[in-house]
């Protein structure tokens, strides 16, 4: 029983980080109908930001996560300005292929500049530290990332649902022309949404090097899992993305422990297929 709870907790901790990555993707997808294939690569770039800040300036990931969030906010806004803007109103495949290209570019740029080597941050504030609760062992780096993720997803939810700016985002998502007609600068909303979606994954990537190795391929799997979470949660639903993020984390941990580590993604994608078969619009979809 204790082992089960331990695995469950580990799963939930990584699930919350998935949830944060997914929430950023979900926001962009829900508002703009754009599938950002470079989302995983945003995460990877954020991890490098955090890694290099640590390596060159001795900044801890707990602090660099803010810088990484801000940096990916700008990358997101730039992605909109330089790429996505030209794909609006064109067939969905255009934006999809464009962001796919951006993903390849970012991955290879980092490969070229930083080599494919795995880079590990040692001697961070949290590295190796654990919390003992009863018989359970909770790794502090993962716990910190999970709590941070929870806070950011919560803030994002409040921003979208309880502020006038958030309503303007929703209005733009529902009917861009009508939003323009009430005086909302929808172009600005699009830029900010892409930026905020990027900032979410940036914060996640910023904290992750305190327990995960950085390399150019690290974002791919996270990007894929984020897609699953968004599709499973219902397109555009932040609570949906959050719940599916947790679910994916838990299923991954349980399958990895009780079946075999190599099967963990089989279980995750199996779960995804099951949900999509039974409820194609996702858990919270409308």
């Amino acid at each position: 029983m204790e082992t089960f709870i331990q695995v469950l907790i580990d799963g939930m901790l990584s699930g919350m980080v998935y949830a944060l990555v997914a929430a950023g993707l979900c926001l962009i997808w829900g508002v703009m109908d754009v599938i950002n294939f470079a989302h995983g690569e945003y995460l990877m770039v954020a991890m490098y930001v955090s890694y290099w800040l640590g390596f060159l300036a001795n900044v801890d990931p707990v602090v660099s996560t803010v810088a990484a969030g801000a940096f990916i906010f700008m990358i997101g806004a730039l992605t909109y300005k330089l790429i996505i803007r030209f794909t609006i109103g064109k067939p969905g495949l255009v934006a999809l292929l464009a962001t796919f290209g951006l993903a390849i570019f970012l991955k290879n740029l980092c490969m070229n500049q930083f080599s494919p080597n795995f880079r590990i941050m040692s001697d961070t504030w949290l590295s190796g530290k654990t919390l003992h609760v009863g018989g359970l062992i909770i790794a502090l780096p993962q716990l910190t990332a999970a709590v941070l993720a929870l806070i950011v997803v919560g803030l994002l939810y409040l921003l979208v649902n309880s502020t006038k700016f958030g309503w303007a985002i929703q209005a733009t998502a529902m009917d861009r022309e009508a939003a323009e007609l009430v005086g909302i600068n929808t172009e600005r909303i699009y830029i900010l949404v892409f930026g905020i979606g990027g900032a979410c994954v940036g914060v996640a990537g910023g904290i992750m090097p305190s327990y995960l190795a950085v390399h150019p391929e690290v974002g791919s799997m996270f990007g894929l899992i984020a897609f699953i979470c968004v599709a499973m949660g219902g397109f555009g639903s932040i609570p949906g993305a959050f719940i599916s993020g947790l679910l994916v984390g838990v299923v991954e941990a349980l399958a990895g422990f009780y079946i075999a580590p190599v099967f963990k993604y089989v279980a995750v994608f199996g779960l995804y297929l099951a949900v999509i078969f039974l409820r194609p619009k996702g858990i919270f979809g409308w």
């Binding site: 006038k164 309503w167 303007a168 929703q170 209005a171 529902m174 009917d175 022309e177 009508a178 939003a179 007609l181 009430v182 005086g183 909302i184 409308w286």
Partner: peptide, 21 residues
Amino acid sequence: PEGRRIFGKLSVRQNMYLGAY
């Protein structure tokens, strides 16, 4: 505009707030 184009998933009050954006 033609066809009302209200923000269907938002409340009446939220629609009004956005009108005064």
